[in-house]
């Protein structure tokens, strides 16, 4: 589904990613673990197409197509989604309006008709219940005045509504208490299937207790220094990152 080959990227003259190789197949959950400044957010931003990054070398293939020149919206419509570490607040932009615009953009791209207000509401109400979210969320402005946990749930609500094939979870556990973490992990797990894949980016092993990865990669200074199964996360939890740093 996703193939990253020898990717070198950065901001202006600062090299951040220094040769990343990663292959994600449908049905797999990959975790990328690393400390602050190791390049985790850069990796998710270059996959989703955020402006301001330079790609010096390498390739990103999604379903065998090179996507480096694609706009963020084209990548999203092709099935790539990111749950943001810091979801942006948008005062005056109604959550329902936003979510419906995103869903209808996807439907339009698939040659389907817009979903009407009633159909949309029915669809979203079910997801809201799963995430233990109140319907009043829908009336609020996107992420405005949301607590940390509410923002993250809102991200998962978008994921469940848009049904992407590749979901990148960027530090989804940051700022969450254990109850919120469980709700979010349940949301993610309910979305798992043999056709969908996840890239879970995290600092700590904590989230991986609830979202079990098939593969764990350790990112240090822009490179994967070690890859392994889920037991690698436990090892990191015990030993820290020092033993992997050269």
């Amino acid at each position: 589904m996703l193939a990253i080959k020898d990717l070198h990227a950065g901001v202006e003259d600062k090299k951040i990613l220094k040769g990343i190789d990663l292959i994600i197949n449908p049905g797999e959950v990959h975790a990328v673990m690393g400390k602050n400044g190791s390049g985790k957010s850069t990796l998710s931003n270059v996959i989703t197409g955020k402006d301001g990054y330079d790609i010096y070398d390498g390739q990103i293939l999604y379903k065998n197509e090179p996507i480096i020149d694609w706009t963020p919206e084209k990548r999203a419509l092709a099935g790539i989604f990111m749950s943001f570490q810091y979801p942006v607040a948008m005062p005056g932009v109604n959550n329902t309006y936003f979510l419906k615009a995103a869903l209808n953009a996807k439907r339009k791209n698939a040659g389907k008709k817009d979903l009407d207000a009633a159909g949309f509401l029915k669809l979203v109400k079910e997801k809201l219940d799963d995430l233990d979210m109140d319907a009043s969320y829908l009336k609020r402005s996107v992420n405005e005045g949301f607590s940390g946990g509410e923002k993250k749930r809102n991200e998962i609500l978008q994921m469940l509504t848009l049904e992407p094939e590749l979901s990148i979870m960027d530090e989804t556990d940051s700022g969450l208490d254990i109850d919120a973490l469980k709700i979010i992990a349940n949301g993610v797990n309910s979305h798992r299937s043999s056709k969908r894949a996840f890239l879970v980016i995290t600092h700590y092993q904590r989230l991986l207790k609830y979202i079990e990865p098939d593969f764990v990669h350790v990112l240090i200074d822009g490179k994967f220094v070690k890859s392994g199964g889920k037991e690698l996360a436990l090892e990191l939890e015990k030993k820290g990152y020092h033993w992997l740093e050269s």
């Binding site: 989703t48 197409g49 402006d51 706009t71 919206e73 948008m90 936003f98 978008q158």
Partner: peptide, 17 residues
């Protein structure tokens, strides 16, 4: 970027904001 990452075209995203 947030809006575009949800599949909304740039011009539409500007309009929404």
């Amino acid at each position: 970027f947030y809006l575009r990452s949800r599949g909304i075209k740039k011009d539409d995203a500007i309009g929404i904001l």
